[in-house]
Simulated assay, not measured.
Amino acid sequence: MTTLGCALLPTFAPQQYLPIARAADAAGLAEICLWEDCFKETGIAAAGAILASTSALRVQLGVLPAPLRNVALTAMELATLDGMFPGRLEPGIGHGVQSWMEQVGARVASPLTLLREYATALRALLAGERLTVSGRYVSLNDVALDWPPTTAPAVISAGTGPKTLRLVGEVADGIALDGGNGMAKLRTAIDTVRTAYDDAGRTDAFKIVISVPTATGRDAAERVRAWLPSWDLPSDEPEEYCVWGDSAEEIADGLRRFAALGADTVNVQPLESEPDPESLVRFLGQEVRPLLA
């Protein structure tokens, strides 16, 4: 069964996060996904506040840019949150948007090498291993967490280009695909990741997470068509990228199309024009989720 969640974009102000998360938790949504875009809200700070303010909601961190953080510090932060809220945090990492990494002086010559070293070390540290490694970007000397998670959380990674997707299939516990991907691109991305996973001889669990831009209400179609150009997406085939409608049945039908690509989790991504995100997550949890189940 595909899990229904909500992707909370950093275009929403920090003061909106907790009311939205509490509404999602009360409505029975399983997951909320945070985005960490430069130079907006941080994922770790928001995750901690949301976890402390809700009772059952899982938080996906989608995603922490590896160039900005030493891997040991990331492992410490994630393990601390997992210790406080066991099983409710799902970390995500990526090699970062290169223009943003350039702005802060953190751009590396080989983002893929960094992501490979970082993901491998992070997963090992969260599994309680003691590491001594000397890589191009990750260097650890006899490092282990004093308080590792009782059960190591899955480490998801973002990816868009084919090289990154193949790497994610090799070294991560899942793939996060954002709302700028259309159906055809999502299908190709998932096939690429799965092929790399198989070629690596893996048999462990692997999670596929898709975020889907979604609008509800009588003006939903107009809002979708106005949103597409802002992401440099074609407006003549909105159904390739978005779901919209005025009823729970319409939204559920649209989300099923994306779930059928093989998604374990479909995160509804509210548009920046969403007038009432709290009502939206209540609608998703109370009316759409039962239809998907």
Rank of each mutant, 00 (worst) to 15 (best):
A220G: 06
D198L: 14
T216V: 13
V224F: 02
R202F: 12
P234D: 06
A215W: 00
R218Y: 11
G217Y: 07
G217S: 12
R202W: 11
W227H: 09
F206C: 12
E222N: 07
D232V: 09
V212W: 03
T203G: 10
E237T: 11
Y241H: 03
F206W: 14
E237R: 09
D219H: 08
A221Y: 03
E240T: 05
R223C: 07
A215Y: 04
D219G: 01
A226M: 09
R218D: 15
A215L: 05
E239S: 08
L228Y: 01
D236V: 01
F206R: 12
A215F: 02
A221K: 05
R202C: 13
F206I: 13
D232P: 00
D199T: 13
W227L: 01
A220W: 01
D219T: 08
L228W: 03
P229N: 13
W231S: 06
E222W: 00
P229Y: 09
R202T: 06
T216E: 03
D198K: 14
D219R: 02
Y241A: 01
P213G: 06
G217T: 10
R202Q: 13
R225E: 10
D232N: 11
V209C: 10
T214Q: 03
D204S: 14
E222F: 01
I208F: 15
K207G: 15
R225V: 09
P238I: 01
A200M: 14
P229M: 12
P234I: 05
G217K: 08
R225A: 07
T216D: 02
R218H: 14
A221E: 08
K207V: 15
D198M: 12
E222C: 02
L233M: 10
